[in-house]
Design a protein around this nucleic acid. Structure first.
Lengths: 345, 345
DNA sequence: TCGAGGAACGTAAGCGCTTTCCGAAAGCGC
DNA sequence: GCGCTTTCGGAAAGCGCTTACGTTCCTCGA
């Protein structure tokens, strides 16, 4: 068995190349102060020895970590997976590694992950999970991230957070409004809303959008059943079951995200309720599979991958005096899950 | 604006607590050699100062990084997102952070990411992307990871790799066989196979399973059209179009993963080909949405989340003399996308 | 009463790298 | 040939932490 020597260090490379550590460092960092001939030689030796710099030593000595943190609620959720894909794409292209944490839709979890990321001295932190409507729930996160920024860290959030940082703002309100308006325009009035935890700003904003659209048609949120459940496929499933049982007269269902809409569709299919002939369904997000469901899902597209890219790009820019804010667009994607109001039986 | 002081260091905490940094370190690490009274005081001061240890300094001084690396092909792919979810779950529960990299289904990319992860001195590396049938494509990865293990790093792979490390082996061959056998049992003989890049072991193994199932019915892979395309939804889409055009007599399609099957279904829906009345479709993986497609997708379940959990658990165990290997189970999930052979027109 | 033994805490030596500050060598005009 | 500027490369000081090794002081048995 080969000797369990530790990985080659810069000193080993320097020795083998017959130069000092300083020269070797400069050569590998491609900084000036070394003749090209020497630099090339050092690099060649390093390559041959399989030398890989120790990030921790480098960071400790003042270099950057070349690592960014990403906090999501749950990576298994396609919404976050797509955002993560965008973040990782930009990161990898710029030579950064990405550390991903689950907050589990829990302020305490978020706090814990932020603490971890700060401990790791990541160059930047992207918080992708929704914010909380209750400011207190993010007070500590905010304090931590503010301190982080004061020490040179960079932060960007996706969504509406009580966190002082650059932000990518998904058009949640407009998206909710677009989905509702679409249904209203089709003539639906008995619309059920399957909502998520009201404590999430994403949910609150989309719901506000729905309310606004309703208002344009002389309705309020009190005129339609709104059922808050989990912001997941199963939440949509159970929500649809309850709503259907309690309000048999509904002609349309809005799920505040596509995952829930998928759960809704599964209930309707199981019950043999034709979509959209008997019931229209709309979601929000436009996750990748939305187009491939049957019926394909009418939804409002939010550019998740791009949001991830944007967030990291912002975070990696030199900080500006005032907080940057970038609104994403949104686009109503009308597919087959919505249609006109069924004739009264 | 508050002074841009850097984060509090251990020395700051020690000073404030009136002890030496050694004592402070011991107190915070909960190691013995400090009276409980002093330790509690130090911890309290640290908490009040918002002290968070610098991971890099800690690592450099000999501590563990408490970070594990995860290499996936693409996190936007639900197969990998679910694996990642499992890895992150176990990691977070054990106090580890997870660094995720995209290899982009490219040996060079994989190599690069491995190098990065090694540079970060992660305690363990989990390689989740498929291996390559061509050993040379992984020779360098193997060398790097072997060296990594010799210096105390831990490695686990998911899939069949030419990498000397503990492995979680998805039942790819059996899964492919199960999908094909199911179709054959239903009476199908004109089965099209929509395959991925043959260079991936996952693809090769699943295909081998299909071959085995065919053999049991007196057929070989030469008797059925096999079309290698991208291992993605769009690959499935274009593959189905070509296969349908070139072999109009097919009665069943096997896609070697669910994402491709989703693409296949979309083609069939667009062409008005009834599933399963006119065409049966089977996939492999059982991604979360498979059950919610319409028709719901017959597929072979591989426990992705569990695979992720298992892989990291193995990697975090003390190394054993010989390589551990754990086979996952698989389970044929018959849903609505497969049915008997349509009567001849 | 004294010294051995041990608990509690401090001192200081690195971990591997970056970077500042210098000295040496080399090129230049006069 | 002399002193000057440039250029190249080396020595060494940390970065913030862990930990082996000391030191101090207390306890307790004989």
């Amino acid at each position: 068995m080969p000797k369990p020597r530790s990985a080659p260090r810069l000193a080993d490379v320097a020795l083998r190349a017959g130069v000092s550590i300083a020269t070797a460092s400069r050569a590998l960092a491609r900084r000036e102060g070394v003749s090209e001939a020497v630099a090339a030689h050092v690099r060649e030796v390093a390559l041959r020895m399989g030398y890989v710099a120790n990030i921790h030593a480098r960071t400790l000595a003042g270099g950057a970590t070349s690592t960014v943190g990403l906090i999501v609620h749950e990576i298994g959720d396609p919404y976050f997976a797509e955002i993560a894909s965008g973040v990782i794409g930009v990161a990898s292209q710029r030579g950064f590694s990405v550390q991903i944490c689950h907050s589990g839709r829990d302020p305490a979890g978020e706090l814990h992950q932020i603490r971890t990321l700060i401990a790791h001295r990541t160059d930047a932190i992207v918080v992708a999970g929704s914010g909380y409507t209750e400011p207190a729930m993010q007070a500590e996160s905010n304090a931590l991230l503010t301190a982080f920024q004061e020490t040179g860290g960079r932060v960007a959030v996706i969504g509406r957070h009580h966190i002082a940082a650059d932000a990518v703002r998904p058009d949640n309100e407009a998206a909710g409004a677009a989905a509702a308006a679409h249904l209203l325009t089709l003539g639906h009035r008995r619309i059920g809303v399957i909502s998520g935890p009201p404590v999430l700003t994403t949910v609150a904003d989309r719901l506000a959008g729905v309310e606004k659209a309703l208002a344009a048609h002389g309705l309020t949120l009190d005129d339609v059943p709104v059922l808050p459940t989990d912001f997941t496929r199963n939440g949509g499933h159970s929500g649809a079951e309850r709503l259907l049982a309690e309000h048999p007269d509904l002609t349309a269902l809005i799920a505040l995200n596509d995952l829930m809409a998928i759960g809704v569709l599964s209930v309707l299919r199981a019950r043999g309720i034709a979509v959209p002939q008997q019931m229209s369904v709309a979601g929000v997000d436009d996750v990748a599979v939305a187009a491939d469901l049957a019926p394909s899902l009418t939804t409002v597209r939010l550019p998740m991958t791009e949001m991830g890219e944007l967030a990291l790009t912002m975070a990696l820019k030199p900080p500006s005096a005032r907080r940057r804010r970038k609104n994403t667009g949104h686009e109503l994607i009308v597919r087959d899950s919505t249609g006109p109001v069924p004739p009264v039986r």
